[in-house]
């Protein structure tokens, strides 16, 4: 039952991944990896920004230390997400279950899991991961093999889908909760600073910028008054 609920929740994510990982497949091959290397990277990592950076290091003169440091910085947000999912975990999500599903914590799986009213169980997490991991791997394979065949206007329009999905996670929640609306807008404003102010753009990597924007915006929400209370009391 929980597994099936998870499976259903994972289908739109998996379809989104199919298109995004398609672009990753194209990118990896165009940078000089072979198709099976691109597929292996996607199957084992299941990250977007982290993989793109990883391929960059592999195909330049990068070494293991640069790889480790870059991966940590870009993927640090998953640590925060893991703690957030912990807050919604029920008893079936024990240590062995967590070891099993940990690698499936992605932005979207996390967003959907935390956006639900229900607790997160082991079977839900396994279910929600199934289609996205398949879609992510399959999309990479298709992109690596067929990338050069597709007209660029089609390929480029597919790449935006994942962001549409992010919008669909944030907006309904922001409509319900004023503080979430406020912190989301603050995060966007900060992210624009990192994007458009040259000094910041040149010196702060994408992974770091996201962490700084997210943490600062959330902290402003926490210390600006009417937080948390309704959340705990409405459901509890």
């Amino acid at each position: 039952m929980e597994f099936r609920k998870g499976l259903a929740a994972g289908i739109p994510i998996g379809l989104g991944y199919l298109s995004v990982s398609f672009s990753f497949g194209i990118l990896a091959v165009s940078e000089g990896l072979s198709w099976w290397q691109a597929v292996l990277i996607s199957l084992l990592n299941v990250t977007s920004a982290g993989q793109v950076a990883g391929v960059g290091i592999m195909t330049s003169a990068g070494g293991p230390i640069e790889m480790a440091v870059t991966t940590v910085v870009i993927n640090l947000r998953y640590s925060l997400m893991g703690i957030s999912i912990s807050q919604k975990a029920d008893r079936t999500l024990n240590v062995p279950a967590r070891l099993l599903v940990a690698n499936f914590i992605t932005d979207e799986i996390f967003g959907v899991t935390c956006g639900r009213k229900e607790d997160a169980s082991r079977n839900f997490m396994l279910g929600i991961a199934a289609v996205p991991v398949l879609g992510w791997t399959l999309g990479t394979l298709l992109g690596a093999l067929l990338g050069s065949v597709l007209p660029s206007v089609v390929a480029s329009s597919l790449a935006i889908g994942i962001y549409g999905m992010f919008v669909a996670i944030v907006v309904p929640k922001a409509e319900e909760d004023r503080t979430i609306l406020r912190v989301s807008l603050i995060a966007v404003a900060l992210s624009c600073l990192f994007w458009y102010v040259p000094v910041l753009k040149e010196h702060v990597s994408t992974g770091f910028a996201i962490i700084i924007c997210a943490v600062v915006a959330a902290l402003i929400g926490v210390f600006s008054g009417d937080h948390g209370k309704k959340e705990g009391e409405a459901h509890g």
């Binding site: 925060l80 979430i180 912190v183 915006a217 937080h227 959340e231």
Partner: peptide
């Protein structure tokens, strides 16, 4: 509670 939404907003 806020982190999911600030992360996604900043990324988007």
């Amino acid at each position: 509670d806020y982190i999911p939404y600030t992360v996604l907003s900043a990324m988007t």
